[in-house]
Simulated assay, not measured.
Amino acid sequence: MSGGDLPSVVALGGGHGLSASLSALRQVTDQLTAVVTVADDGGSSGRLREEFGGLPPGDLRMALAALCGDDHNGRRWASVLQSRFRSEGPLDGHAVGNLLIEGVWQAISDPVLGLGLVGELVDARGRVLPASTEPLNIEADVLGLEVEFPHEVHVLRGQHMVASTNGWVQAIRLLPADPPACPQALTAIERADYIVLGPGSWFTSVLPHLLIPQLAAAIIASPAHKILTLNVTSGLETAGFSPSRHIELIAENAPGLRLNTVVADEAFAASDAALAQTCATLGADLVVDDVAMHDHTARHDRLRLAAVYREVMGGAEADLEM
């Protein structure tokens, strides 16, 4: 990054977690690329995936909505992308943005080019790319699904089933095991000044990026400053997991990965006296701050999170439209 330039940042994840990091990061830089999981098989995305067989558009749509500007036009487009049809017919429940993306893909057979076209339409403040050029499935080993046999391992398949299970996820795999990474995503990672992983559903939005061999290798090899953003609390998928356990899962799934910074909310960090030491095992400094919303929801405050990212990135600041 040359003097005076804004940092080039790649953010990886999916769903609401990636939306939170993107909403914060676009306050810091206009050189932003989102690399999005493509394993969603529930709701509107699942229905479109079953009908057309292509990439699920839902998490990609959410990333585009998060990159819409905070001016009137940007907020209107974000609202349109996220709105859903309400009817008695087959369109009921479909997200408008999902159908827009799917329609563009039908007209333009290149999904990356199609996402770029939609991004231009909604004036997205960054680029959205799929993690893989093929739709993926998540398979998980889960304990505790039967009261009589709490230690029996069951195999669940599908992002929706894994994300909503009441059992304890022990490990996840991708199907196929060696999917092709999106070439443009690999290029973005290679050129990045900063790579941001998390927050989000740990097993279905964060870890899958590290299970795509080409993508994981690019992240590990990149000289970029690597930031891991922890959730503000343990979620449904990782209920009862300490902050340190979240980091251990990163290490277990990407043994060669070294981090530079781990960002944690002060309330969640306070529950784990070993957190700083765990971060150090991966080479990372722990940054603790108040980054949670104060409305009793388990969400990040985008402006507080943006302030932390800006400080970590050396005070990078843009004259960006708020």
Rank of each mutant, 00 (worst) to 15 (best):
L6E: 11
V10R: 07
V10N: 07
A11G: 10
L12S: 06
H16I: 06
G17Q: 05
S19R: 12
S19N: 05
L22M: 04
S23V: 01
L25H: 06
T37H: 02
T37M: 04
A39R: 03
A39H: 04
A39P: 03
D40F: 03
G42H: 01
S44D: 04
G46W: 09
G46V: 05
R47M: 05
P56K: 11
P56F: 10
G58N: 01
L60F: 10
A66Y: 08
A66E: 10
A66G: 11
C68Q: 10
R75H: 11
S79D: 11
V80M: 13
L81S: 08
L81I: 07
L81H: 06
F85P: 02
R86C: 02
S87H: 06
L91T: 08
L91E: 09
G97W: 10
G97M: 10
N98I: 09
I101L: 15
G103C: 05
V104W: 05
W105L: 14
W105S: 10
W105C: 14
W105Y: 12
Q106N: 06
I108M: 13
I108R: 12
L113N: 07
L115S: 02
V118G: 08
V122D: 07
A124K: 08
R125W: 00
G126L: 03
G126S: 05
V128L: 09
P130N: 04
T133R: 03
P135T: 02
L136N: 00
E139P: 00
D141K: 07
D141P: 01
V147R: 12
E148S: 14
P150T: 12
E152M: 06
E152R: 13
H154K: 14
V155H: 10
H160E: 13
H160G: 02
M161N: 12
V162C: 02
N166V: 13
V169P: 11
V169F: 07
R173D: 08
P176Y: 02
C182S: 04
P183G: 06
Q184H: 10
A185V: 05
A185D: 06
A188Y: 03
I195D: 08
G198Q: 11
G198K: 11
S201C: 14
F203A: 04
T204I: 04
S205R: 07
L207G: 01
L207F: 00
L210Y: 05
P213D: 06
A216W: 00
I219N: 03
I220A: 08
H225N: 09
K226A: 08
I227L: 07
I227H: 02
S234N: 15
T238C: 03
S242Q: 10
L249P: 00
A251L: 02
A251R: 12
G256N: 10
L259I: 15
T261R: 07
V262I: 15
V263C: 02
D265C: 10
E266S: 15
E266C: 14
F268E: 05
A269G: 12
A270G: 13
A274V: 05
L275M: 09
Q277R: 14
Q277P: 01
Q277H: 13
Q277I: 07
T278C: 14
A280T: 10
G283C: 07
D285R: 14
D285Q: 14
V287P: 01
D289R: 15
M293P: 00
H294C: 05
H294K: 13
D295M: 09
H296E: 09
R302E: 15
L303K: 08
A307E: 11
A307D: 13
Y309E: 07
Y309Q: 07
M313E: 04
D319K: 09
L320E: 08
L320Y: 03
